[in-house]
Design a protein around this nucleic acid. Structure first.
Lengths: 343, 343
DNA sequence: TTGTACGCGTTATCAT
DNA sequence: ATGATAACGCGTACAA
């Protein structure tokens, strides 16, 4: 028992009158074991409340049981959804989740992550967007022998290392919805430059307009940073336009909330005077007035799948993970921020 | 180097021409070391890129370097803020953060947590409210020798195991703000029964009214669950009252958002026809219209302090942690959802 | 100031 | 089917 209080495999072995290797076999469900020795050992285990020490296991097995979540996502709900999904995958296994936010702005970001991965010798990491779009980071994982799966809106890597949502198509569907309602002057609030998701969403937007034969003058496109305030600035400009757009698609919910904010300040009623669609379906989408029509991407499912890819990957079988789905569909959630234009 | 690729302490010792104990001393900054041997060893370490194996250290030291965050908080922003604070405290140390959401509704919750703590032999855990209010859980930590610090709105434990915010006083200040504006009929949307924070906030509310000599009829108090929807239901009832309350204090921002939601549906303008104050200052507070006056509690600072208490606690010195602050002040954030009553 | 020998709790090898 | 013995990488007595 020692002074730690926790019984060890030696205690179990001694009391059960077997060798510790036998106890080890019981723990690891070795098939070649006499049924009554197994029973006897299991009884002692239960009686002592013995729990194998993960650190010792990690040492002997030359691998640990930690899965990392590396993220720089500013949206709390999305990060937590991702954590939720990973934890679902890890439930019932011996893996634990350790989280690591990083600062993409920092010059030492890559070194920080490298240090983290090397120090902890993580079994694998899930990379959340937008940091997941960093190819150097992925290469870093490979170079130090850390399994990884990236989450993202475009297939940046092979399926064993990637779970992808179809942002682009989902945006096309969302904008088609606006077009079907009769909208023709549709404003666009972009995501930040350099973000792959922002590019995908823009492409989806432009495709919808182009397929419907609707022009997309530059004036109808406003920059954004995925932040609330940038939605405000973008809306200020778009709503100054003459004629005003009858609808605005914002590349995420926060910016869409900013758009609605400005519309209200100007006495415009949503959706009567302006239809708005966002993206992400985070909590804010259903909490603002009117409830926001938006695109939901299944982040928890994606994260779960990512984690499953990692823990089902064995050293020699890098693509056992492929069996886990790699493509996920984002879908339009229709709420109350869209109607036909009234003019 | 072995086949793992990572150099070990033995590699360093061999190449530097010293014993591994000497290397160990360098790593652990032992004072009794010749300067040039230290230098020589450090050179080899840098050259090899040697990083001590945390699992092996954990095994030898009979303790690991994992800090847990146990939570059942439905608010993503608050959980993430807490994670942020803990990670700040852990930065530069060898500790890592592992997260564990629990389901307070589950009958097996305590067993789940116990299993988690015993299996991973965590160095310590930070308990986030509302689960932190569970005394049985705290006792469980003690009984299995896991350090813990609880976060909460009332001092439920001694300072070595607790960081506390003054919710009650903060609410009093918030309600005083309403009273100063001239409000006399102030509605109250409560938090869920059994939550200590809900009780504290109610007490703060009642104290403010009582000190101002204002009556608080039962009709002005509505139940809530800290969720948006419950804010809606509560507001429906409160705004049916004749005469209507001129202000409503909701025990958290989500419910306050629900109140504003209903007010708008009824054609009431906030704050002209109704002033609203929330609690928590989560992202939603600044993203709704009008921006919500609310109480901000310094959750990240509290979590940081909690983590520091844990890692500065040594086995024999349980209260070295006391030096870390235990009391934190929540403050009123004035935005645009409060004005004088217009009637 | 530095080294030797051993222990931490587990798994792997190779016997029997 | 089971056991003795040696790893795994690091820390600590205790000795030198």
């Amino acid at each position: 028992m020692e002074k730690t209080g926790q019984p060890t495999i030696n205690d179990v072995a001694r009391i059960a009158g077997v060798s510790k290797k036998t106890v080890s076999r019981v723990i690891n469900r070795s098939p070649l074991l006499n049924d009554d020795t197994r029973k006897r050992v299991e009884d002692v285990i239960g009686q002592l409340g013995y729990i194998p020490n993960p650190q010792a296991r990690a040492l002997a097995l030359r691998r640990n049981f930690l899965i990392g979540l590396v993220h720089d996502n500013p949206n709390a709900q999305m990060v937590l959804n991702a954590q939720q999904g990973i934890l679902e995958a890890l439930h019932g296994t011996e893996f634990e989740l350790v989280v690591r936010p990083v600062d993409r702005g920092s010059a030492t970001m890559l070194d920080d992550v490298r240090h983290f991965l090397e120090r902890q010798r993580l079994f694998g990491v899930v990379l959340l967007p937008p940091i997941s779009e960093n190819d150097t980071l992925a290469k870093l994982c490979t170079s130090i022998g850390c399994r990884y799966v990236r989450m993202g809106s475009a297939q940046l890597d092979d399926p064993a290392h990637m779970v992808t949502s179809n942002d682009s198509q989902a945006v096309t569907a969302a904008v088609n919805h606006l077009i079907e309602q009769g909208h023709r002057r549709i404003g666009f609030v972009a995501g930040p430059h350099g973000f792959r998701s922002a590019r995908e969403r823009r492409e989806g937007f432009e495709r919808a307009l182009s397929e419907a034969g609707i022009a997309f003058p530059r004036s109808l496109s406003a920059d954004g940073t995925y932040r609330f305030e940038s939605g405000i600035i973008a809306a200020e400009r778009l709503l100054d336009l003459m004629p005003r757009p009858t609808a605005i698609f914002a590349c995420n919910d926060e910016m869409a909330a900013g758009v609605i904010h400005v519309a209200r300040q100007r006495g415009l009623e949503v959706p009567r005077d302006l239809s708005v669609i966002g993206f992400d379906d985070t909590a804010i989408a259903s909490h603002i007035w009117p409830p926001l029509t938006t695109v939901r991407w299944p982040i928890a499912s994606m994260a779960r799948s990512a984690a499953l890819k990692i823990i089902s990957t064995t050293a020699d079988n890098d693509d056992g993970a492929v069996e886990e789905p790699s493509m996920f569909r984002s879908t339009l959630i229709r709420r109350a921020s869209v109607s036909s234009p009234t003019e």
